[in-house]
Write a protein that binds this DNA or RNA. Structure first.
Lengths: 249, 249
DNA sequence: AAGTGGTCTAGACCACTTG
DNA sequence: AAGTGGTCTAGACCACTTT
């Protein structure tokens, strides 16, 4: 069982369950609580924070709702590991016309380090000129190149990232962020529009330049709610849809 | 205060707070609990259902999370009325490039009653040939025609709907559904893709036929989780984005 | 059998809104 | 002052998983 300092609730702002929640978030972000490792049980955690079990549960329940923790009846509570199936599809929302999701084949087509443009800096919360990594992927579905991703990330956060890391990884890139760099992606904002494919995307996707493509701009955030990845996805949506499912009853 | 029968919990399936929730949902759907009207307070409701206040609260909290109820500290609990600002933007997700939302101007360009195609029947849970209403709207943002909506709804659910109802209404069409027909939209599934504008959409939106447009297909559900509206929106996304905001911490 | 989370209770007290 | 929801407690008992 993880041994952690007797975090004092009174040192944090806000009401009790929010304090507990924010302490848990920072411990997850710092790596003190590792993905896949079992949490202390509720009574122990409640005692550590000096709150009742009910209050502890409320904090944990919110983190479960935010997909940061997972509880399993009879087994325990865990930091959600990004290799879990359903987690992948929290961020990968392309399905075929019948609504079926498929794990994409990923090919890295470019990797470089560069100085952040003003736009990159703004989105990622950096200074213009700070180092960023830029990478480009082509994702295939049903053996057809379907998505062209351009990704920018803060080089400092991902110090030591190499082309090898990326090409030799198993699993998603978000899993790599989490396992090698301790950066856990918790949520993302996306903006979508239709546009005409530029020359590069058209070539990579094997379509005519100027064809209608779906453009998805995504900013992904860590558990601490800091922007850490900026991504433009160009999608040939002639065979797939972007699916947005609202939470049903 | 609303006077309702002493609904017996034990007659419903599932565990207590789920029973309470499903009874509340059916009472909202049936119109026994009206939008904007104050709920009985927690202790009274709990007594009516024969559960503790904590259990009642849990049911209500889930309905609040699903945007069906609204609680206001010190004032009371209400069925959410669809004319509330933020509710509009639960379903209208088009923002300008700076992320600003604007209330669209709506113009009805077609209205008819027809027999459901097999596709309409399938989506809406009808039989092929059942009566449906079809309507088309053009939505303008910043005085530019931006969205062309094609909407199909079950004619039986909206019996008595006329062109007048639609053109003379104040507020959103979902508010009309709720106020005139007692149909409260609670959530929706959406699928997006890029495509080339067809002749009709191009004309209505004042763009070239074949221009890249965003196609949004939406199925909207009632509080009882029954599909009740099918809508295809064609969006000229040269000035607006579809914004998908994930719930942050 | 032991340990975990899931549900439920019956209170207490606080914060906010309204008359 | 009265009424509402918001937070918190300290238990009880159940359901599920593991040993």
């Amino acid at each position: 069982m993880t041994q952690l300092p007797a975090a004092s609730i009174s040192a944090q702002p806000g009401i009790a369950y929010r304090k507990v929640k924010s302490i848990l978030i920072s411990e997850i972000a710092s790596g003190a609580l590792q993905p896949g490792v079992k949490f202390p049980n509720e009574t122990a955690l409640a005692k550590r924070f000096g709150v009742s079990v009910g209050t502890l549960r409320r904090a944990v329940e919110e983190l479960v709702a935010e997909n940061i923790l997972v509880r399993q009846h009879g087994r325990g509570t865990f930091v959600r590991s990004l290799d879990e199936e359903r987690f992948l599809f929290q961020f990968f929302k392309l399905a075929d016309r019948d609504g079926n999701f498929e794990y994409p084949k990923v090919e890295l087509v470019a990797f470089s380090q560069a100085q952040a443009t003003s736009q990159e800096a703004k989105v990622l919360g950096l200074q213009s000129g700070d180092a960023v990594f830029r990478l480009e992927n082509v994702l295939s579905l049903q053996d057809r190149a379907t998505v062209h991703d351009r990704i920018s990330i803060d080089a400092k956060l991902f110090e030591g990232l190499t082309q090898q890391c990326l090409t030799q990884r198993a699993g998603t890139i978000y899993e790599l962020y989490q396992r090698r760099f301790g950066v856990t992606i918790a949520c993302a904002d996306e903006r979508l529009r239709a546009e005409d494919a530029d020359a590069r995307s058209a070539e990579l996707l094997g379509i005519a330049p100027g064809a209608s493509v779906l453009r998805i701009e995504r900013v992904a955030f860590t558990v601490e709610n800091r922007p850490c990845e900026w991504r433009i996805s160009i999608v040939n949506s002639s065979r797939v849809d972007y699916v947005s499912r609202s939470a049903h009853n």
